[in-house]
């Protein structure tokens, strides 16, 4: 599956979409869900929670293992996706549609520190070796 060119990425396999209003939508990548396998539990951060960059803020669990999701940049959680908590398997079906939470970055310029699709592709390929 191709890595969407319009998204940003983290080395810990989160994807980030910069919305028109400057908020960030965050999920885990197709590669991450593929490594984890069948998803059975998702726990999102509470709305209003203030996150540091790299802070553990959500958990996705497959039958096989639990995995932390990290804040891609510093900011405040403005929405959490209850639908994906109710249907964790939606992450397996389409990882780029099944967003986990939305956040307002503390500093919009921080988005520039994230990986673009080409850099993330390289990272995934290097991990395959």
């Amino acid at each position: 599956m191709s890595i969407p060119a319009d998204l940003k990425y983290t080395p810990s396999h989160e994807w980030v979409r910069v919305e028109a209003d400057g908020t960030l939508t965050v999920g885990i990548t197709h590669h991450a869900q593929d490594l984890l396998g069948d998803m059975v539990f998702v726990e999102n951060p509470a709305q209003g929670r203030v996150l540091n960059k790299g802070e553990e803020c959500a958990v996705v669990e497959s039958v096989k293992a639990a995995s932390d999701v990290y804040a891609p940049v510093a900011g405040e959680v403005v929405a959490a996706n209850g639908e994906v908590e109710a249907s964790p398997e939606s992450v397996n079906k389409d990882a780029y549609a099944a967003w986990l939470f939305k956040m307002k970055p503390a500093n919009p310029a921080d988005v520039g520190t994230l990986l673009d699709a080409a850099a993330y592709q390289k990272l995934v390929e290097s991990e395959a070796h």
Binding site: G37, D38, S62, V63, K64, N92
Partner: peptide
């Protein structure tokens, strides 16, 4: 082999 597709 850990799975051939969906473990479930």
């Amino acid at each position: 082999p850990v799975n051939y597709g969906s473990q479930i």
